[in-house]
Amino acid sequence: MHDFFTQTWTWWFSGLTISAIMFFLIYFGQRFGFSSNLRTICAVSGAGKKVPFFNFNWKTQIWNIVFLLGAVIGGFIANQFLSNDVPVQISTLTIQDLAKLNISAPTALQPAELFSWDAVFSIKGFSILAFGGFLVGFGSRYAGGCTSGHAISGLSDLQWPSFIAVIGFFIGGLVMTHFIFPLIF
């Protein structure tokens, strides 16, 4: 039983539990959409005084900020108590492709080339993290949602806008991976 939780969760179990999270949120009168928190954080920080987009009653969104704090704690718990210290078992094809970009095979969950302190304190490494985050924050609000709001919640309700957004996610991801990565790594 313990092994079941410490090894990588299989795809169907992961998918089922994500779907369960969405239905629990619906049952509790809310909707699964994580990137709304980015807008709420701007509003809580007082951005609403200058920018109308952030002038809304953010107090109705406190539940989502609490959910966010829970997610941070969940990451901590998973690392401390449910980790088996086995590197991510990705496809050997991916390992070979990444080797061509000078990114070494997994020794943990994340590549040191991007997330180590050495990377953070280099101009290139910092720029990658900053630019990546900026695009996600900008794009998710422009598209009106992220993976949770569109790919999970929206597609579950068979919403056409979410289908378009998910197509967009993949166009962007494929362009970055196949055309821009060879230029920057």
């Binding site: 994580f34 990137s35 928190n37 980015l38 966010l68 997610a71 941070v72 704690i73 969940g74 990451g75 901590f76 998973a78 690392n79 969950l109 994340q110 991007l114 990658i128 993290l129 630019f131 990546g132 985050g133 900026f134 695009l135 996600v136 924050g137 900008f138 794009g139 998710s140 609000r141 422009y142 598209a143 009106g144 992220c146 993976t147 949770s148 569109h150 806008p161 979410s162 378009i164 957004a165 998910v166 197509i167 967009g168 996610f169 993949f170 166009i171 962007g172 991801g173 494929l174 362009v175 970055m176 991976t177 821009i180 990565f181």
Partner: peptide, 30 residues
Amino acid sequence: RYILGGIIFGLGWALSGACPGPMVVNIGYG
């Protein structure tokens, strides 16, 4: 808005390897 916003999001998702939820989970992870 969905196609352009989606493409911009996707570019960032592939670059940073994280959408908003996983970002904060990563922080909790360490």
